[in-house]
Design a protein around this nucleic acid. Sequence first.
DNA 1: TTTGACTGCCC
DNA 2: ATTCTGC
DNA 3: GCAGAATGGGCAGTCAAA
Length: 800
Amino acid sequence: MGPKRKSTGSLNATPKKGKKDVDSGTQSTLDAFLGIKSLVSPGGNKRDGSVTSQTSAERDENGEKIPAAVLAGDQFEQWEEWPPETWATNAKPRKGFDSVRDVAGPELVPGPVVETSAVSISVQPVDEPVLPINECVETRPPYWQSGPTPYRLLAERFAAVSEVTGRQVITEKLTHMLRLIIRHAPQDLLPALYLSSNNIAPAYEGIELGIGPQILVKAITSISDMSSKTIKATWDVKGDWGDVVVAARMSTQMLVQPKPLTVAGVFSTLQKIAAMKGQGTVNQKADLVKKMMIACQGEELRFLTRTLVSHLRIGAVRTTILIALSHAVLLEHDIPADVLKSLSKDQLKARVKTAEQTLKECYAQVPNYDIIVPLLLNPDIGLARIIAECKCMPGVPIRPMLGKITRDLTEVFENLEGMNFCADYKYDGQRAQIHRSDSGEITIFSRHLETMTDKYPDIITLIPSIITPSTTSFILDAEVVAIDEAGAVASFQTLSNRARKNVAEGEVKVKVCVYAFDLMFLNGVSLITESFRTRRDAMRKAFVPVEKRFAFVEQLESKEPDEIQAFLTQSLQNGCEGIMVKILDTPSTTSTSTRRSLLATYEPDKRTESWLKVKKDYLSTLADSFDLVPIGAWYGTGRKATWYSPILLACWNPETECFESFCKCMSGFSDAFYKSMKDRYSPESGKLLPGPKSYFTISDSQRPDVWFLPSEVWEIRGADLTVSPVHQAAMGKVDEAKGISLRFPRFIKVRDDRSVEDATTPDEIVHMFTRQRVRGPEPVKEAAEEDMGGDNEVEDDEII
DNA sequence: TTTGACTGCCC
DNA sequence: ATTCTGC
DNA sequence: GCAGAATGGGCAGTCAAA
């Protein structure tokens, strides 16, 4: 690892952590929207949790990092203006663990300031002066008086946006940025939106950047004098590639400034990078990255880099960008300036709300800026008429409707009391949206709207045999599930063994069955505004089951709690994850006035209570849990930069007296728990080890940043057990060269009542693994049996 | 030619 | 996927 | 209740290095 040394840094004015930064909560939506009162102070909470303090780093004789006394975050509670020069030129190590980590070597010690572009770092201009809404976009920043939109505009706005946390303020800043672009360089709106949402194309076009840390490191080594080793050490300190690159460039005298980057230029370079394929392209990509980096000024470097690793981290992704776009278009396009003046606050408020909903709805059905943006900018269409143009159509995926997690069946009945509902099996496979256009073209999309038509040639050829003669175009919602020779459903892991590209129909190794559950479009007509009952019935008429290849999901239409409970149990016995409970009919509004109305319509992109997801692993009575021992951890990044995350957990093998790595866990911990953990595993605790104990069994790929003395037992819950190529638990017991791990691990609680030798054993894990494989007609066992894993206080979970 | 790091995408 | 947190 | 962030296991595909 890094060099063994001490370094001392300076203590700088520090933005405080917390939420005193913005008083956005008291600001009305309308004011925020209009940009009135946008008196947001600079130097607020940085989303990445970074601060500018720095203390010594130390290692023990083995070269392992040892946390020194932790910096109390609270001592920086007050906050001050943060002069641009300061934060542009000083590395910002990660709070709390500054002292844990090797501070990367001499390069990072603040030396003479060589920053060449400090002027571009603005804190002041971040917030526009209070301007009447008609004029605030008249004034462009001094560096952009004409011509195409400079990339610097985006970079500075991104920096400003990451300084604050309030939704309204974030939206407002982005809206202003987009308004400037619409007004002064509308041709840049599309690339600006892509860059703001960290995409370069609609998901379904399958265009990938193919850039990650590797190429980044290559590029950084060529523009700075950091070694790749130092760069990695810097990453360990900062946990953000944008910050790493900024630090790297400061380490060298990069004085030549090429032409400033433009939004369109950056975007087209990214597209060029994405188009590169084949031998030697890694270097070519790195070369383009390097060229852009060299041209960066000020904040540009940080955000360009974050864009390259697809992790912008400005606190705004799809939805917020979409809202900002709707606001910007409304003000710049749909409402003429003179009309705007004459609108009352309430009128404007209503227009804003409508604009947001309109655009969200459009995007849910046509998730493609290439289509939406030209329509928005078209004087004849705009927000007013776009809804008619953005209807779902075969060939363009719609964002799928999602189910809400339900932790208990009683919750289901409370939620759906008085309504008509049914329950579907929730199969453990891959969601598939199958489209057929009028011309007979078939496309299959994944849950996140990637095109996966190539992966399923067998489904393509299946289609003619599953439709009735009158069925032409359709959009079908389904789950693709692996099956064995007998036609019984196989595990998700089996399905994931399937090839994804260049699949020839005759060479399909993993056979699948399509389980259909919804129909959103049929014969030229959208069905999404119809009730689920209507859609389901239409689906049953338009399609016919084909044995072992196509079926409708198993469904129960009953309001009887006992029957639904039995249906859930039965679904699990048949290899499913659980059930989805769905409203069949939209209740009449007059019935239960107090409750929010639940819709039976297909609500793209929404996770509503109209679909309730009941999975085995949410239910304490049915889920397996494990008692595991933390034996190591990594340093978190971003929001968790000051804590250990994830944690490496092991089971206890009493025969070999070894702790065997079983899974990593990062979910289920509260911030308070992270804090207390840092104390429990502080250097003074004596629980930090210089290296792994000889009785730890872990694979090389799972070496954590710090090692723990085994001293606690944690209850961990997960979904199912998987055969693992990396984890060592029960190695060789179900597969010669593989261990067992856990899908969706999450922390439940500390088991103070257990010692580390009471932890779950490999044999217990194997037992659970074997049990979960039992499927098919024979029932597994009584559902609520509790045995291993030690759920000692599980209360019984009677339904109603 | 084989191995393995990296990347993206399923859950 | 799951989970927590701030708004 | 939404939106965002951080990150789990594990696979196939891609390209570079051995």
